[in-house]
């Protein structure tokens, strides 16, 4: 594995709050690296350090080294515009510039000095094709980018980023604002692109990370918990926190077919209601029940298990409420 971005002891602060603590990791070349972790763990901050967009935040400070092609991005004497040109950014929310579709894609090449109309035409076509948008927009290149659907706008942003011919693509939760079909579209494009580009994707969607990633970095509260090849980390996490994160995500993402609220009920009524609800469900369906009676938290799962159902999780939601997830057998 050849490293493309080398992160050495990076610390980031917003005023007094330390957002990244001593991050040291290598990002492999021409693979998809997923940075996972809960919200507020520093994923986006780390991404913003790569192209130094973090400079735009008032009161942000970064120390350490991020080496890309023998150049330290965090060294303020380098030409940051050159570094940024080498890293396309796919943002969380599509951010088309207030101009036409054509001008959006041509924006990058133009600011880097390409004026030849024919060359620009070719580039616009080429990168809209790579982003999988060409067929949908080829007849209306002059219409404003804001007229596109959100999913199309995101692919336009991808084309725009690719048009400056970067080596690296940074994606900051690129599908979180998109519908499932558009998300899938973006994911497919990224998978196609990884043979030519080093891709770093920040995501809190663990399924997405599993679908896309070759390499995984798990961040928690500004620190790296675990990093390694994706199949190892997902199948056999060395760290308990990674396992908990992966499992937790699975449960909260799980499709619940039926939900009953048993708050205010005491034993044995909550037990009876739960039984009735399960009885009404077809086999294999999933029931979530909310209880606030401490006895129920232990007794209801036990009873249901005795009936042959599968208990998937018991979790405390807040001070008073627990959530029990059961699969009907």
């Amino acid at each position: 594995m050849k490293s493309h971005i080398s992160i050495r002891n990076v610390n980031a602060f917003y005023s007094d709050h330390q957002a990244l603590k001593g991050i040291t990791v290598e990002i492999p070349e021409k693979q998809i690296t997923a940075i996972i972790g809960p919200s507020g763990c520093g994923k986006s901050t780390l991404l913003k350090c790569f192209n130094r967009l973090i400079d735009l935040t008032d009161g942000a400070r970064v120390s350490g080294k991020i080496i890309v092609d023998d150049m330290d991005v965090l060294n303020h004497s380098i030409d940051i515009t050159d570094v940024r040109r080498r890293m396309g950014l796919l943002p969380q929310k599509p951010n088309p510039l207030p101009m036409s579709i054509y001008d959006n894609v041509a924006y990058g090449p133009r600011i880097h000095g390409i004026k030849d109309k024919k060359k620009l035409d070719q580039m616009v076509e080429k990168y809209l094709k790579i982003a999988g948008l060409w067929d949908e927009v080829k007849d209306r290149l002059k219409s404003p980018a804001s007229k596109l659907s959100i999913g199309q706008q995101q692919r336009l942003c991808l084309a725009r980023g690719l048009a400056v011919e970067p080596e690296i693509i940074l994606c900051d939760e690129p599908t979180s604002a998109l519908d499932p079909v558009s998300s899938q579209h973006i994911e497919q494009q990224l998978l196609k692109l990884k043979s030519d580009y080093t891709i770093v994707i920040v995501t809190h969607n663990i399924h997405q990370a599993m679908r896309l990633a070759d390499y995984v970095i798990h961040l928690y509260l500004g620190e790296i918990v675990e990093h390694g090849a994706a199949n190892e980390v997902f199948e056999n996490p060395k760290e308990e926190r990674t396992r908990a994160y992966i499992d937790g995500t699975f449960l909260s993402d799980m499709k619940v077919d039926e939900e009953i609220d048993l708050k205010g009920n005491v034993c044995p009524y909550n037990f009876v209601y739960a039984k009735q609800a399960l009885h009404a469900l077809p086999k294999g369906k999933i029931l979530r029940m909310i209880v606030d009676d401490p006895t129920a938290v232990t007794e209801v799962p036990r009873g249901m298990e005795a009936d042959g159902h599968e208990i998937l999780s018991v979790k405390q939601r807040n001070k008073k409420e627990w959530e029990i997830i059961i699969k009907k057998q």
């Binding site: 192209n51 080498r86 510039l97 990058g108 725009r160 980023g161």
Partner: peptide, 21 residues
């Protein structure tokens, strides 16, 4: 700020970003 980020991340200078975006 997304507008600025879009332009800057393509390697535009600050003035180019202000002028064009």
């Amino acid at each position: 700020s997304e507008v600025r980020e879009a332009s800057l991340s393509l390697g535009a200078t600050r003035w180019q970003t202000i002028k064009h975006a």
